[in-house]
């Protein structure tokens, strides 16, 4: 079952903490959401270099790494590899009956693959728009930011949970019995 993690939160939290400390000692604290911008910058720079270079925000991140990948991008790519490897090793790769539908979602909203994928896509857009406006996401702001005792990261953490809890409650307000 995908619902019972292999590692307890104690062990996973301890190991994850040690890894973030290691990253901070060797390079810098860990963050993910910037790499979405870096990816956009690389893709657009390949397709239309002048458009990418004239966009102030893409230029800010693209120029720095010469419109290529850097340490941070490789870290996120590593996360993809690491997750895939551990999922395969623990036989949790493609565990769902329908790879697009979480069981819990299906119970509430029914067997609608298209609806779920649209939700997932729009959710992703909101996540990254919010993360870029804040300057970080769950990793960069919540974990790395709060661990550096950054005031804004506490504000971000409170804000995402307030909004996330409210939205989740609205989505799951009544269990459909049909």
């Amino acid at each position: 079952m995908e619902d019972s993690p292999v590692l307890s939160w104690k062990v996973a939290g301890l190991l994850l903490g040690l890894l973030v400390i290691l990253a901070t000692a060797l390079v810098k604290p860990f963050g993910v959401s910037t790499q979405y911008v870096v990816t956009d910058a690389i893709v657009l720079h390949n397709a239309a270099p002048s458009v990418a270079e004239s966009n102030e925000y893409l230029n800010k991140y693209g120029e720095k790494a010469d419109w290529g990948i850097g340490y941070g991008w490789m870290l996120v790519f590593g996360m993809f590899l690491g997750s895939g490897i551990s999922a395969l090793a623990t036989r949790r790769f493609r565990q769902r009956k329908n790879p697009a539908l979480p069981a819990m979602w299906k119970e509430q909203f029914g067997d609608h693959k298209g609806k779920r994928l649209i939700q997932a896509f729009i959710g992703g857009m909101l996540l990254l728009f919010g993360a870029r406006l804040a300057g970080g996401c769950t990793s960069g702001h919540m974990i790395s930011g709060i661990s550096q005792l950054t005031v804004g990261s506490f504000v971000f953490g409170a804000s995402i949970f307030a909004s996330g809890i409210l939205t989740a409650r609205t989505l799951y307000r009544k269990r459909s019995s049909s």
Partner: peptide
Amino acid sequence: IIIAGLIFGVGFAISGYCP
């Protein structure tokens, strides 16, 4: 940051993932 967090939180709950 508060506005950003409110937007992020909606995306968090709708998708069930973070970045």
